[in-house]
Simulated scan of single mutants.
Amino acid sequence: MSFQNKTVFITGASRGIGKAIGLRLAKEGANIVIASKSVEENPKLGGTIFSAAAEMEQAGGKALAVQCDIRDEEQVKNAVALAVEKFGGIDILVNNASAINLASAAQIEPKRFDLMYDINVRGTFFVSQACIPHLKNASNAHILNLSPPINMDKKWFTNHLAYTISKYDMTLIAIGLAAELRKHGIAANTLWPRTTIATAAVKNLLGGDALIQMSRTVDIVADAAFYILSKPSLECTGNNFIDEEVLAKEGITDLSEYAVNPGGKLYSDLFI
């Protein structure tokens, strides 16, 4: 599949994995809609919708920066409408925006719980709903959620129950949409990294510079997304993909180029 002039709507694309996916597809000539909140740079996180849009265009694509808090359905509807007005439709949706809090069930505050559910679950659901009418008109429509395979090992529920169930709900949304939308030729899949990925969230919330050194770059997830979204939507739907497994099926088994510290120890991501 050619991505030339295909329109890709990505939530949380001002930095990290979402931005990397946007850049990868922009290199193929795609139109990238950056639907994110950041209009002023946070020194700890870096990037805004405007700086990301400039990079997408430098990479070879076209870009639309739209300030959008996906917790607000009116902002979501507006972002989708602006995307369709500028590019004529939406071919691909990447539900990347996510909130993380690893507090235990005994400790998590209601507002932190609500934040994760409003972004990870409610946001993913209603962004998908808003895009569906336009995806139905696309020739090879895809929805891709950045969420893990559902692993029922109790260790994933023991220490951070709220986060786990919010991410599993993102996966359930993809599974459900795959079944519901197959008749319309719309694929829905999930993608998750085998290892931790060198993002601001990993550095600031999980393990600092030490964990970054045991991580892979965002490029591995972006390349995996590229291959998934290249597949025929009628043949590739309802899957829970792991990045390195996607690349292996494409004959890419030497992943050393993706390591922050080539040859060093890699740290497995959550749910793997």
Rank of each mutant, 00 (worst) to 15 (best):
D219L: 04
G207N: 03
F271I: 06
N261C: 03
T237D: 14
T199R: 06
A222I: 08
K249R: 03
G238I: 11
E244D: 11
I220H: 10
L229H: 09
Y267I: 10
L181V: 08
I220D: 02
N189T: 01
F271V: 11
P262Y: 01
T195C: 09
S233L: 01
M214Q: 08
L206C: 10
I186N: 08
A179P: 07
D269M: 07
L211H: 11
K249M: 05
A259E: 15
L206E: 14
A225V: 00
S233G: 10
G264N: 02
D243I: 02
N261Y: 02
D243M: 05
H184M: 03
N240F: 09
W192D: 08
G264S: 00
F241I: 10
G251Q: 03
A187F: 01
Y258V: 00
I242M: 15
I197L: 11
A210W: 05
T196S: 13
T195N: 13
T253K: 04
A259Q: 15
L211K: 09
D269A: 09
G251K: 11
G185T: 07
L255E: 12
P193C: 12
D219M: 06
E245V: 07
D269G: 08
I186R: 04
S233H: 08
A200K: 07
V221K: 00
A201I: 15
N204I: 02
E244V: 06
